[in-house]
């Protein structure tokens, strides 16, 4: 009845075999949380679907000497609860825990969140903030790495060829004096699409009290998450304080003014990003600067 063919490889070799036959009408799904909705809304009718959800080898979070490796089929729930990720990239754990609902996180995967390349994808800013790369397998059986920035085009598009699939997300283990945080703003507290989201990773040792090497990525303010050097500058070489928080918030507003100048949403977002600024600031420095709950 339907002109859809579903292939369900259950290991990497079988996946590569599927990719060999891929063409422009081939799509990849894992959890299926977005695809199945499109299907039932009659937005897609033809083609081959390669379902990666059966490849158990792609569900893991591993620690190597210098990097953390996440299998592309790891669910957002698993990522949000994973101890290694909580330790090495709390911003990613926080972001994954705020995607959709419990049911969606139980099914949706990190590669799906990346591959869909939505402007408001929550896991992308944290991954970009640490320069994560993606391990990609092609129909030719080759495996190569690209940065997440290279793969995500934005506005719902990615750079992957039709015979390519993300198999692993890799990010460097930052040294102990790096901290990170994520915050998002939607129309409500939970189960909400981000109107703005942000991830910050920076170097801070309580001894020297100095912020260095800040990386700030903002989402939902353009076709894809982007780095804000203005905001990074506002943080670098500063000591966490209430004054810095104000300065940081102002920089965020400035970035909004630049990024979405003239859009109807600018009026709201330029002010509301202050909330994100505060959330992130107190997640990072709540132990050294009091007052996070007011």
């Amino acid at each position: 009845m339907s002109e859809i063919i579903i292939k369900t490889p259950d290991n990497l070799e079988a996946l590569i075999e599927c990719l060999v036959c891929a063409n422009e009408n081939t799509g990849l799904i894992s959890g299926g949380t977005d695809f199945v909705i499109q299907l039932s809304q009659r937005k897609r009718y033809r083609g081959t679907i390669i379902d990666l959800s059966r490849i158990n080898d792609l569900k893991y979070v591993k620690e190597d000497k210098d990097v953390i490796r996440i299998g592309s089929g790891t669910t957002l729930t698993d990522i949000s609860e994973n101890k290694l990720i909580k330790k090495y990239l709390p911003s990613l754990s926080q972001a994954a825990g705020q995607v959709g609902s419990t049911q969606i996180r139980n099914r949706g995967t990190i590669a799906g969140n990346i591959g869909n390349a939505s402007p408001c994808a929550d896991t992308i800013p944290p991954l970009m903030s640490v320069g994560a790369s993606l391990k990609i397998v092609s129909g030719e059986g080759k495996i190569y790495e690209k940065t997440i920035d290279e793969v995500v085009i934005g506005s719902g598009r990615n750079n992957l060829k039709f015979d390519e699939a993300i198999v692993e997300i890799v990010f460097p283990k930052l040294s102990n004096d790096y901290i990170s945080a994520f915050a998002k703003l939607g129309t409500r507290k939970a189960v909400t699409i981000s109107k703005i989201n942000a991830a910050v990773a920076l170097k801070y040792s309580p001894k020297e009290k100095l912020i260095e090497d800040a990386k700030v990525y903002l989402g939902a303010l353009g076709p894809k998450s982007f780095r804000s050097e203005i905001v990074e500058e506002a943080l670098n070489n500063k000591i966490p304080s209430k004054e810095l928080l104000k300065y940081f918030s102002k920089a965020l507003t400035k970035q909004v003014d630049i990024s979405i100048a003239g859009r109807s949403s600018q009026v709201y977002k330029r002010e509301a990003i202050k909330g994100i600024g505060h959330d992130i600031f107190y997640k990072l420095f709540g132990n050294v600067v009091p007052g996070g709950d007011s």
Binding site: G31, G32, V36, I49, Q103
Partner: peptide, 8 residues
């Protein structure tokens, strides 16, 4: 727990 409307 998963939503069966988003799963094939």
């Amino acid at each position: 727990a998963v939503t069966s409307c988003t799963i094939l």
